[in-house]
Design a binder for these strands. Structure first.
Lengths: 218, 218
DNA sequence: GTCTATAGTTCGATAGAC
DNA sequence: GTCTATCGAACTATAGAC
């Protein structure tokens, strides 16, 4: 067994430990706010080791994004493919659900990080910084095209331009679900809870589908 | 005339010059990424003067947010009030337009900043950082309640919980309009342009109204 | 009110032993 | 592959002259 294979006791390499700590730190404090020192301490490794494995802070961030994105988007692609592999064509509602469920379940499933990666996505998706957009282009534009195509297949009245806008708007709505700001509770006197992803999905899906169909009719 | 009254030649106090430079810097580099040194240089003042007027970086940020927010939200409140002051009740479409137009026009109207404040709002609205949420609570929750009430008045079938969710989702969609990431052009091969706020509004308004009405019917 | 100069801290990255 | 130790360059904030 090589020295960096499964670590004794918890089956995680030091590289993974660093990526996990980085994910939490970037989610909590942002890219600029997260310190390499703090990430090293949280990962239980020396700061120098991070630079040995990932060279720079920026490359560490990219590796962290790539790891989780590839995992999420493989699942999203599989869900869409499965929907179209059935006998009759899927409903719009199923496409929209496939858009979000893998992301929220990656956050909940791993549980340990309290949706850290989802929070990174939120501060990321709407960034105009060319560095962020480059990462989005590489890791998210291909799956976006898959969903845009899917929207046009299930709603034949939708033009390509409208499908692109619809996708962007849908992502914008989804961000409000992943941000977990606590604002819905504040605005509603406690009635609305943005910590309940399942409850939010049940409102987000009809909202987006209503929006998409309004574009079709317009 | 006191020494800090209208500056010779361009009628702007040094405090305003600092706030303008801060707005641009925070928009371009984020809160952590924007340096007091750079803000001072852009404003054409000594770094010490910023601390004299605003004490700390955090208080400077708050003052910058307060200035523009109060301006935008006064305009939004006036638009909603005017809509309900007419004879017959306004349409949902008019409420949604009143939600966004003052913000995009503050960006375009001032022109000089290329929508800098809108970009700050984007990186701001979805932040779970307690400091950001405190600012949102103070400067945006009151106007949010105004719009939530307006939604319930023009769509009587909407429950309060649904109106709060609808408001949150609408803001999420609006963020995709203000972010100016260039992604729509990338995804559409150049057909969609997120630099054209007016064209985006004409899609965003029907999308959101379709979403709201879907919640009513649901 | 505005400036210069700098104190005091923290950061990303590297060097070199093991 | 991993550590300790440290360099050099930022940063925010303050002190004090004008």
């Amino acid at each position: 067994m090589s020295s960096n294979a499964a670590r004794a006791g918890h089956g995680e390499s030091r590289q993974d430990a660093i990526l996990d700590a980085a994910e939490r730190a970037f989610a909590a404090d942002g890219y600029q706010g997260a310190a390499m020192r703090a990430i090293a301490e949280a990962a239980g490794v020396a700061q120098g080791l991070i630079h040995y494995h990932f060279k720079t802070k920026e490359k560490l961030f990219e590796a962290m994004v790539a790891r989780r994105s590839d995992q999420i988007n493989a699942r999203r692609a599989a869900l869409v493919a499965a929907l179209f592999a059935q006998g009759d064509p899927p409903r719009l509602e199923q496409i929209v659900e496939a858009l979000f469920r893998p992301t929220i379940e990656t956050g909940l499933d791993l549980a340990r990080d309290g949706g850290a990666f989802a929070r990174i996505l939120v501060s990321f998706a709407n960034s105009a910084d060319p560095r962020d957009q480059k990462l989005i282009e590489v890791h998210y534009d291909p799956i976006a095209q898959t969903f845009i195509d899917a929207l046009m297949r299930v709603e034949p009245g939708l033009s390509r331009a409208d499908a692109v806008w619809a996708y962007m708007f849908a992502i914008g709505v989804g961000m409000t679900m992943m941000a977990k700001t606590g604002r819905p509770a504040r605005l509603s006197g406690g009635i609305c809870d943005d910590g309940d992803a399942e409850a939010m999905l049940s409102r987000i899906v009809p909202f987006i589908c209503g929006g998409v169909r309004a574009l079709v009719e317009g």
